[in-house]
Amino acid sequence: MNGFFNTAIKLVIVLLVSMSLLQAKDKLRVVTTLTDLKSITESIGGDKVDVFAIATGFQNPHFVDPKPSYILKLSKADMFVTIGLDLETGWVPPLLNSARNANVLKGAPGYVDASENVSLQQVPTSVNRGEGDIHIYGNPHYWLDPVIGKIIAKNICDGLIRLDRENESFYQGNLKKFSDGIDTKIKEWTGKMQPFKGAKIIAYHNEWVYFEQRFGLKIVDFLEPKPGIPPSPSQLAKVINEMKRDNMKVIISSPYFTAESADLVARNVGGKVVTLATSVGADASIKTYFDLFDYNVGKMVDALK
């Protein structure tokens, strides 16, 4: 019996020691809320970071379940990157409160709010929940403008440098590469969208304002009568009339909304529904932040031409 216990104890100790050796890291462990932040962090951090994104690319970023397994990831993280504002307000606070890791709490060097220095759209002057799910700081879907992606990248780069000053020039170099990449691609993307400047479209949810402004589209109305309130028959009727009146043909939706309402409207006006990607990974072909806009611009061009 004693022998059994001794062996068992030795085994446990060997396991624990090997665990701590495995944990003796040389990479910074980064947890991001969205896959877009993961992609950008990987662009800046290269092989010096190990990144985990909590939400998947096809998930509604407002509604993510705060599973305990994410608490575990956060408890071991060196850095946490969030879209911020109040996009993740339903699930990030309970995760951070239980993470027992002061390195990633607001105010710590490892806490990166990607929205810093981003010019926000639709900042309300007053807030009333009668208007639906109102974002009190402004529309938080800013990562859907690739030019703002450069500001996000800068915020992430600053965070990595705060934690790992030794590799500052490495991160700065990657930031430059990333920003130059956006500057090159933006010409291609806006060039492709140029013929459709001012095109009027309908969206399911109010999450495309940054995309709309960057690429010169005009979102006239939404299938949701108010943000977060599911499409109602009267709203759909209103949208059908608007689309007929202005001869609009395109409704943009997101991967996490069911198709019925958008399909119904499209059938009634002889239009089409385009499901755009809201994040990296929304479609298997979208592996990076650059792919996200290749995909969305391609989809829009196909739909509008």
Binding site: F5, N6, V12, I13, L16, S20, Q23, K76
Partner: peptide
Amino acid sequence: MHRVQWRGLRLCFIALLSTSANAQQDST
């Protein structure tokens, strides 16, 4: 036998503590 168990448990506890401490600190 009980003493052996207790010593073992104590060792485990110390090992566990040091593991989680290592997770947060530099391995030096």
